[in-house]
Design a protein around this nucleic acid. Structure first.
Length: 422
DNA sequence: TCTGGGGTCCTAGGACCC
DNA sequence: TCTGGGGTCCTAGGACCC
């Protein structure tokens, strides 16, 4: 029987901020989403105040102020780098690991002796090497490892580790887990299950398979089997190449001007192109979307997207900007207060597969590729925006709000913390 | 009077994840 | 005034082909 470990960082973004601001250790802390919109991470103290996950920040502004909650804009340069350090540390502990998200990893501990002791070792080592606290759940399936992790976080008496492999009373454990807390059961299915009188993970695991299969597809059926201890989801150590790449942002204020919109589309096109090259891919297609603010009742709404195909799959920023702006030209309508735009690149393939085409001029293609290499090289050395494309604008009055970002302590020379000797 | 059936591909929409 | 961003997967249904 397999043994999976799920390692999950506790309140990850908050923990990253605390590593560099130890004075925040026992204070309530929250981190906001992009554009300072929603709460996306909360310390235990902030949770205790009743601040909800995903809650719009303006709704709890009063509460944040009254309790002197430390509030941060999100700082993905910092979180991404800290994540890499955590993952590097975890990788020492098992022959195979799947990095599942920025703050979670599955490890395959099958056949290793003393899995619980190993889990405690992971926890201590990650804390010592990176400053980040983690919890570890062990189980015979990924879904049960998820359950174990959640319980390990919730109950301090467990010391951050819970093992559900060969657990003496798994039924009692699953009876205590709300059905909508199970990995793979979201809002819609949760509501449907409640309607059937299914309240706990245990109730769900006892439903007829055919019913679950019909309503929740094979995904739901896998979840059910995994709760019964039948492993359906393998560790995915080498994730498939990406199928799409997206760059999008809400505006810091409504945009009405076509010129500003063109700038923003160019900006996101350039970001998406960078990511594409970072993954060693080229894109065959582009999608551009624009949308107004759906939360403003009574304001005229408009949300449209359109796509186009590149003559030859490409990762060259100028081409991607050009086609992106052409698509924008087809969908942009004046007279609306726009909230957001974005660019998606899809039809991806590895750049190495690109075998040329009658439609391209090989010399120009080579020049474009060389240019991108130079741009990426300079930006890698001197900061992401050392070289940008003029089409994405300079002032960018539409850029997102980010009023409370901490320094990029670990990735920008000028922002590295200074340790005083006195 | 009699008028098939099976396979593949694509897309839109829905659901989920962190 | 103020409500994130980036992904994946599955299914149904239509188009198309033989």
């Amino acid at each position: 029987m397999p043994t999976f470990a799920l390692v999950d960082c506790n309140a990850f973004y908050v923990s990253c901020e605390r590593v560099f601001s130890p004075a925040l250790a026992d204070r309530p802390v929250v981190v906001l989403s992009n554009n300072d919109g929603c709460i996306v991470a909360r310390s235990a103290e902030a949770k205790a105040l009743g601040i909800g996950m995903g809650q719009p920040a303006y709704q709890c502004a009063e509460l944040l102020k009254r309790h002197e909650v430390a509030v941060f804009s999100s700082n993905y340069a910092l979180y991404g780098d800290m994540s890499a350090r955590v993952m590097d540390t975890l990788a020492r502990f098992a022959p195979a690991m799947e990095v599942y998200s920025i703050d979670e990893a599955f490890l395959d501990l099958t056949g290793l002796p003393e899995a619980v002791a190993l889990a405690r070792g992971m926890r201590d080592t990650v804390r010592r090497f990176t400053g980040i606290p983690v919890s570890v759940g062990l189980g015979p399936t990924k879904t049960l490892a998820k359950v174990a992790n959640r319980l390990a976080k919730k109950d301090p008496a467990l010391g951050g580790v819970l093992d559900l492999c060969g657990h003496a009373d798994l039924e009692r454990v699953l009876r205590g887990v709300d059905v909508e807390e199970v990995w793979g059961i979201g809002r819609r299915h949760g509501a449907w299950l409640r309607g059937l009188g299914v309240r706990s993970a245990l109730d769900f695991s006892r439903l007829p398979r055919e019913l679950v299969r019909r309503r929740m597809t094979v995904i739901g059926l896998q979840t059910l089997l995994e709760l019964q201890g039948v492993s359906c989801l393998d560790l995915d150590a080498a994730p498939a190449p990406p199928r799409s790449v997206v760059a999008s942002r809400s505006f810091g204020r409504p945009v009405t001007d076509a010129g500003e919109m063109r700038e923003a589309v160019a900006f996101h096109a350039a970001r998406a192109a960078e990511r594409l090259r970072g993954k060693g891919c080229v894109a065959g297609n582009i999608l551009v979307f624009v949308q107004t603010n759906r939360f403003v009742a009574g304001e005229p709404q408009y949300a449209v997207s359109d796509t186009a195909a590149f003559a030859v799959p490409t990762a060259a920023t100028p081409e991607i900007i050009r086609l992106g702006q052409a698509v924008l030209g087809r969908i942009f309508r004046p007279g609306f207060r726009y909230k957001k735009t974005g660019v998606m690149l899809f039809g991806l393939e590895p750049a190495a597969n690109c075998r040329g085409s009658l439609l391209e001029n090989p010399r120009e293609t080579a020049r474009a590729r060389a240019l991108m290499c130079v741009v990426d090289g300079i930006n890698a050395r001197h900061g992401r925006d050392a070289l940008t494309f003029a089409a994405s604008g300079l002032a960018r009055p539409w850029r997102m709000k980010q009023g409370r970002r901490s320094p990029r302590y670990t990735t920008v020379w000028d922002e590295i913390p200074v340790v005083r000797a006195d």
